[in-house]
Design a protein around this nucleic acid. Structure first.
Lengths: 199, 199
DNA sequence: TGACTTAACGAACGATCGTTCGTAATGTTT
DNA sequence: AAACATTACGAACGATCGTTCGTTAAGTCA
């Protein structure tokens, strides 16, 4: 890896941390340069514009999300086991204080950019749409495998799962409720129980 | 109402609209002054600092929230009917494009300030904690009335309700999913059904 | 109407924003 | 080591940020 790629990677790592706490609006070239002990212009040159930096951050976050959340789930058996792993690693992603001290970056960005037209909003919406598709597809597979009810609505399953995750973030990060993760796991168990075939 | 109070009210209304779209980070004294066709310093004088403006906005939003969401619910019969009204007016609050073009202000602020220590974060967390208490208490009352199962966990009920609401915002505002409200209502019906006594 | 309080203004402050550009230093390769 | 490409730098740009202050205009009430 060349020097440039190395520096760029270090910038992205630091910027991800900062953005998870402050959002895209809250990070600035100058602040990142200070933290990385380099000049504003030197850092800036790696991206060409702040918007380009933001796009790169979305890609970097998506890459890491796939590695830490999706890949482990794909190694698990199709159907319910995969969904169990998916949820667990999803929680883990959000609780990783080292890489994302401010919690899941996508949650923070979702409400920040949803009203701001432009490539950043478009890209995030696309990524998050894909994520909902993955959740939906995973539920569909569980139906095919006979793990879940045949009449389950997979999209509704994805919706409910997203709600459990968002509520966890809200309880944990704003309300500082220590039982947030437990509550999320309870709701998840209930969601699974409702998805099972009648017997 | 004196001239000063009148102007202050106009500022708060406009600032609420702006903040629902851009968040507290995204609004500035200058921008609000432009929109209201007054001077920066004239507007500024009403609050003394931007932080004071933000605190006033929290109070104003909380006031309006109580009027549009809580009061109607309190007029409904205790128990399940009250919770039905509560959820409906809560959705209405979030969909009121006139006053909050960017959607529920509390949702936007929750993720924006959750990592920024200070009076604004403290106040928002207090308000939202109260809201969760109200939801929890409403579920408790429904248990007392015999509308809900005796072994229902009211806090978990509040958690799930919050998740449904947050997912609705996410689907509607970021993903622009036209069925977001329908999905929220479906999930709500399912939540109620699970809360009912066995029979 | 006159006296007094309140509200709004315009100009300026230092700080920081994203961005540009010419130059110096460092990496990489032959 | 020489030659070239890459990377980083420092200084400056216009714009905007929150905030201060002295002054003017408008509202309020005896």
């Amino acid at each position: 890896m060349s020097k440039g790629q190395q520096t760029r990677a270090a910038i992205l790592t630091e910027a991800l941390r900062a953005a998870s706490v402050e959002g895209f609006q809250g990070i600035s070239i100058g602040m990142l340069a200070d933290r990385l002990k380099m000049s504003k212009s030197g850092l800036f040159a790696h991206f060409g514009s702040k918007e380009e930096l933001e796009m790169a951050l979305l890609d970097e976050a998506a890459q890491r999300f796939m590695d830490t959340v999706w890949q482990p789930a794909m190694k698990a058996p199709r159907g319910r086991p995969r969904i169990e792993v998916l949820f667990k690693s999803w929680l883990g992603w959000s609780l990783n204080h080292e890489d994302l001290p401010g919690g899941c970056l996508f949650v923070a960005l979702a409400v920040e950019v949803d009203d701001k037209p432009g490539p950043v909003r478009d890209h995030l919406a696309e990524l998050q749409g894909q994520w909902q598709s993955m959740l939906t597809r995973s539920a569909q597979i569980a139906v095919q495998e006979g793990h879940f009810r045949a009449d389950l609505d997979p999209k509704q399953f994805a919706y409910d799962l997203q709600g459990i995750f968002l509520a966890m973030n809200y309880y944990r990060r704003l309300l500082r409720d220590g039982s947030a993760v437990d509550r999320a796991e309870d709701s998840f168990r209930s969601l699974i129980a409702r998805a099972l075939p009648l017997h």
